[in-house]
Structures are given as C-alpha cells and as structure tokens.
Design a protein around this nucleic acid. Sequence first.
DNA 1: AATAATACCTAGATAGTCAAGGTATCAAGG
DNA 2: CCTTGATACCTTGACTATCTAGGTATTATT
Lengths: 109, 109
Amino acid sequence: MRISKELAKGSNGMLVLSVLEKGDKYGYLIVKEIANLSDNVFSMNEGTLYPILHSLEKEGYLEAYWVEAENMRKRKYYRITEKGRKELAAQKTEWKSYSTAVEKVLGYV
Amino acid sequence: MRISKELAKGSNGMLVLSVLEKGDKYGYLIVKEIANLSDNVFSMNEGTLYPILHSLEKEGYLEAYWVEAENMRKRKYYRITEKGRKELAAQKTEWKSYSTAVEKVLGYV
DNA sequence: AATAATACCTAGATAGTCAAGGTATCAAGG
DNA sequence: CCTTGATACCTTGACTATCTAGGTATTATT
C-alpha cells in the first residue's frame, strides 16, 4: 500500500471479496485488479494477499480451483460463495458506517 | 469501537488530533467527544487513547499541561501544536485518498 | 544467457488495538 | 455511612493484520 499500512488494516479482505464478486480471479490478478481500480493507490503485498485468501477460503467465503491449460502457468482461481457475498454485503455496510463516522469527527459531515 | 477493530487501525491518531484542533481537551473528554461526534459509532478504549496521546506528545504534535482547580479532579489537558496541525492536514489528505480508493474498488465511484 | 514478469507460497517482525486490570476522587441513592 | 457509578489518570499482556524479506518455479523478452 502507498497508504500508511495502518489505515488499510481490516479493509483488505473486503477489497478481495469485492473484486471476486465481479468474477473469478487468481491471486496475482487480484493484486493487479485492486491496483487498477484504485488508480494505483493500493498495491497489495503478496505476503498480505495469500494469507487473506487462505483465511477467506477457510471461513467458507471463497472456493478455490486450479486451472492448468497448455502454455500457461498453473493458476489457482478463487470463486466467491453465497456466504462470501453475504459477508461482503455486511462489510460494505460496516465500511459505510465507519467512513461516515470518521468524516463526522473530522467535521466533513 | 463498535466497528471492527481492524478497520479503525491507523485512524485513531487522526481523530484525536482532529478533536483537539477545535480546542484543548483532557483524555476522558476526548473519548466522549469522539463518541458524540460519531453518533456513538466510535467508543475509543482508554487503553487505546492514552498510548496514542503519549505518542503524539512525544512526536511533538501535542503539548500537555495539568489543570488542578478547587473542587475538581486533576485533569491533563492537551493542546495541538503547529507541527500537529500540519500532521493532521497530511493525515486528512491521506484519509481522503484512502477512502476514495476503497470506494473505487467497491464500485461506488 | 540474463532479466523481468508471472505465479504460488511462508516466516518473523512490527505495530495498533483490545481486554483487563490498577489507582483515586466525587456525587448520588439507599 | 456505605455502596455504586461516573470521572480521570494509567499500564500490561495478548491478539492480529500487515509488512519485509525470503523461497520456488515458469514464461516472455531482450
């Protein structure tokens, strides 16, 4: 992250779920997608991403499957589950509540 | 915090600076002020606040002084310094950048 | 042949927050 | 008078998300 690491804490899981809601992706591509969508404000570290993916899978929010076509590196794709979609919705609600509260304290609202 | 603790990481220092920008306050009152302004979304733990205050003071962003009037508990007031105001401005800019980036990834923008 | 990009991963350190506790004063209610 | 709750300061130990830094391997480019 270009952004101070601490600000980001807690939002990365949500960001991962969010890009996967729009279609299955493999790890490396998730990093690129988050960088692109954020206009390169975020550049998620791989050492951050993979533990998050494993944790989200363990919680049942994601399912993984390997794709191994010819002339292509092996890629581990992730698909968001129904449980994952619900979790994402909850986290988005929480994000709204959090960011609104911050802006109230800052005097923006 | 009612908000998941991780989301809050990194923003608390900014919130403290922000409420002090509007006038000197002592620790206990800072907690109340942040709770009030955020409509009780935030309820900062004292175990979180005091280390933050000490750290901000150490960095030169705050200055402390005791007030000990009659019929009153001893209160340790904090005043934001010029350096603190600059830091706050920088953190507000970073917050804007961060929250905008999150909302871009979430597809709100 | 060397380098950069792709693609997966882990281990140890760092740092912010929390829960839980301590100390002490004051006001209100029983 | 005594207990309770609010005020007001603080510290310690645990938790956990992230980072830095490393590892392995393949493919494309120069």
